[in-house]
Each structure stands twice: as C-alpha cells, then as structure tokens.
Simulated assay, not measured.
Amino acid sequence: MSFLSINLSFAQTEKDSYEIYSSTINRLVENWFDPPIEAIIVVERYSEKFKQDFSDIMDLTIEKIPKSTLSWYVRDSLLQQRFLNDQNIKKVLRDLFANFNNHPKIKSELLNVNGVEIHTLNSKKYHSYLNRGQKWRKNGWKRLENKYNSKFAIQFSKISYQGNYASFYYEYLCGDLCAAGAIALMENAEGEWKVLKEFNLWES
C-alpha cells in the first residue's frame, strides 16, 4: 500500500509540474510585446551557467522579515500578511534556495502549450550557440534564432512544493539584449495553479 501511495504521489507531482511549466509558457507567450511567437526553444535541463543570487529574496523566508524587505518585494498588504503568518510560503521558497540542484529533464511531449511549436535543446548545445567559455558569443542569438525560427528560449529549474504552494526559477532569452530571470511563487486554488507572486531577479 505504501509503495502505491508513493507512486501516486510522484505521478501527481509530475502532473502538477507540467501544468505549472505549461501555464508559465502560455502566460509569457500570450502577453508578449512583439509580434506573436510561433515557436519556442525549451532547454531540456536547467544549467546554472552563472550562479544565481537569491540572497535578497531569502530574507522573506526568515522568522522576522525586515519591514523594508517586505514592503519592497511585496507591495500588496494582504499578501504581506500571508508572508508574515504562513510558514508554508516561507518554507517553499527556503527549500528551493537550499537545494537548488538536481533539476529535471523537461519532456516536451508533456507540455500543454497553446499554438506554438516547441524545439528542445540540451543545455550544452544551447549554450554552445551563446557562449564561448565565459564570454558571450557574437551573433550567437541570431544563429540560434535562424536555426530554429524562434524568438524565445526558456529554461526551468526544479519545482519546490509545500502545502498548496510551489516555487521555481525560470529564465528566458529573446535576443542579445533581451533576457530575464525570475522566481515564481504559485498557489493551487480550487485545483488550478495560479501565480501568487513573481520576483524579478534580473533583466536586460
């Protein structure tokens, strides 16, 4: 019985993860500021080419959150109270930061995206277009764009779960000077995962 429960739990988590990944892609594509995106590149497994700095966001996970940090990162007063009082919100973020490794391989066939073609690349091949060692490769994005007819590439970290909450990191690239990275905090409300808060870490 316990073996069956473990398997059911794992299957549910995988289902949730792909619902979250898919909804994130759909939201970004639907709200894109350029002409409609027809194809995207999904990096199969997130690779931390440059170490992410989560130190500022980590202050939101401590017992006594500094007022300055809370007011800066969480403007909504009701959501501020949830950060102060709901330990599951703190834990889902804390667990993501503490164990930021072992990211899953994304299976494109399990993504449910609306009206866009998906190309998958492994991390090594993806970065070979963009970087030469630690340096940005000149015209690297243009080569990638021309090869796959895509103006948008995205990669996801693993997802941390706690209660009705989930958190993960994602970053996207849309040009030589067009990119961003963010932490997403999601909440499962009535069986549907919705964005509770996003923390933009960097952009160009």
Rank of each mutant, 00 (worst) to 15 (best):
H103W: 08
K147R: 15
F83S: 04
H103T: 05
E192H: 14
S123I: 03
Q80I: 01
Y161Q: 01
I154M: 03
A179W: 15
S204R: 12
I159P: 00
Y170P: 00
E117W: 01
E192F: 10
L185G: 09
N112V: 05
L60C: 06
F156M: 03
K51D: 12
E30D: 15
I25Q: 11
E190A: 12
D95F: 05
P36R: 14
Y161E: 01
E63K: 15
N139H: 13
S123W: 04
W202S: 06
N188Y: 03
G133M: 08
F100A: 07
D56Q: 11
W72A: 14
Q134I: 14
Y148N: 08
S47T: 14
A179F: 11
Y126V: 03
S128L: 06
V92D: 06
S167A: 13
E117A: 04
N85W: 09
Y126I: 02
N131K: 11
W193K: 03
D56M: 12
I57G: 02
L4Y: 12
Q12F: 02
C178F: 08
G163T: 01
M186P: 03
K49A: 10
K91Y: 06
E192T: 15
N200V: 11
N146T: 06
S157Q: 01
P66E: 13
S128H: 15
I118F: 11
F33M: 11
K105N: 13
R143V: 02
T61V: 04
L144A: 06
G115A: 15
R137H: 05
N122C: 08
K147N: 15
V74C: 03
D53F: 13
A184S: 15
R94V: 00
V113S: 07
W193A: 03
I6E: 07
F10Q: 14
N149M: 10
R45G: 09
E190M: 13
L173N: 12
S123C: 02
R137P: 01
S204L: 08
Q52M: 11
L130H: 09
L93F: 07
K147L: 09
H127V: 00
E171C: 00
N149R: 13
A182Q: 12
W202T: 05
R45L: 00
W141N: 07
W141H: 07
K142T: 12
E117S: 09
E30R: 15
E145S: 08
N101T: 10
A182G: 00
S157W: 04
L93S: 06
P36G: 00
V113N: 10
E145Q: 10
K194M: 13
F33I: 07
K142S: 07
N85M: 08
T120R: 07
Y129I: 00
T13V: 13
S2W: 01
Y18W: 10
N101C: 01
Y73H: 13
N188P: 06
E187C: 01
L78Q: 14
V116K: 02
G133P: 11
N146A: 13
K158Y: 03
E38C: 02
A166Q: 03
S22Q: 04
I183P: 01
D86T: 02
G175E: 09
I159D: 04
N149W: 05
Q81V: 02
E117D: 06
K51L: 05
L177W: 04
N188E: 11
I57C: 03
K124A: 11
V43Q: 09
S55N: 14
K51Q: 08
L4A: 10
